[in-house]
């Protein structure tokens, strides 16, 4: 198991190096110079040059790449061109919203999807299965921003249980912050849960067709115990992959929901960075997201190792 983890760690480090190179090259290739963009069309060339130097845009590409990577390793992500504040501060503040939101949405989605998928599979072809399949189809089809608005109408405007948007900040206490993230998390979780429940269902059905399920029944296990003791763990293996993909998506992909609920999240930061040619912010956030995705994949790989002994060997 230890050598398996080590080999995964090496893969993680290599992916990070390759990803950082790709991001750097792509940002280099984007047309438009941030300095001239900030100063406007009529700026004098030497003013632009001075700003370029100030922003750290001078030097050869390899030099700039190493400076960028070296800075990030020390927690220095550079200074935002537009906000004029360190990118690290900006990103940390936004992550304080996006990360808990993603975790909440993922927990919710997993907690709904796994039992629902298991239930539908155990009632294959019955009314329970049909309802689950229908509802999840709807959950996938309905756009999450529309669902978010429905939630706002019901729970914020009618019932007044939650606020319709905004984020108080964690310094205002954990409970109000969590409360502010609840509706967005639900809106994000629903389509994810629908997809995950369907994956879970088909995964369980496939496992139920395996020979070892028949063996378990021949040993005298009831249908229910066969499901929980033999089918569940085997069925979770492909579901883990989807959970990993969903988490990566949720960290950065919440931009529409962030807009609906006026949440100062990471998605909005990238969006603003792109429109304002704030490349240093884009670069850093993208790198951070890549890191998050690779890290999650690493964790999924480790979870695979625990779930499936065949991967652990040697």
């Amino acid at each position: 198991m230890l050598s398996y983890i080590l080999s995964r760690l090496v893969a993680l480090a290599l992916s990070l190096v390759v990803a950082s190179l790709v991001i750097f090259v792509m940002i280099e290739m984007v047309p438009g110079d941030p300095a001239s963009f900030m100063l406007g069309l009529n700026a004098a060339p030497d003013t632009v040059a001075a700003l370029r130097a100030e922003l750290g845009l001078g030097g050869s590409p390899p030099e700039r790449y190493l400076r960028w990577i070296g800075g990030m390793l020390q927690g220095d992500f550079g200074t935002s061109y537009t906000y004029r504040t360190p990118v690290a501060e900006l990103v940390t503040a936004r992550l304080a919203v996006s990360l808990p939101l993603a975790v909440m949405a993922l927990l919710l989605s997993t907690l709904i999807a796994i039992p629902v998928g298991l239930y539908a599979a155990s009632r294959r072809g019955g009314p329970g299965d049909w309802s689950v399949m229908g509802l999840t189809q709807l959950g996938i089809a309905v756009p999450n921003f529309w669902f978010a608005m429905i939630l706002v109408v019901i729970f914020a405007i009618q019932l007044r249980w939650f606020s319709a948007g905004g984020f108080p900040g964690w310094d205002q206490g954990v409970w109000p912050s969590l409360k502010a993230l609840t509706l967005p998390a639900v809106a994000l979780a629903l389509p994810q849960a629908s997809i995950l429940a369907r994956v879970m269902r088909s995964s369980v059905l496939e496992v139920l067709g395996q020979d070892y399920i028949r063996t378990a029944r021949a040993k005298g296990l009831s249908r229910r115990r066969t499901l929980t003791d033999h089918a569940l763990r085997n069925a979770l293996i492909p579901v883990l992959t989807i959970i990993g993909l969903q988490f990566s998506f949720l960290i950065a992909g919440a931009i529409i929901i962030e807009n609906v609920f006026f949440l100062p999240g990471l998605g909005r930061l990238v969006f603003q960075g792109i429109t304002q040619r704030d490349l240093i912010v884009v670069e850093s956030v993208v790198m951070l997201l890549v890191f998050a995705v690779i890290l999650v994949n690493f964790l999924v790989d480790i979870a695979y190792g625990f779930a499936d002994p065949r991967l652990r060997r040697r």
Partner: peptide, 13 residues
Amino acid sequence: IFQEPMTALNPVR
């Protein structure tokens, strides 16, 4: 007991 010894046991236990 069954024919397929390769698949008749639960692989994760």
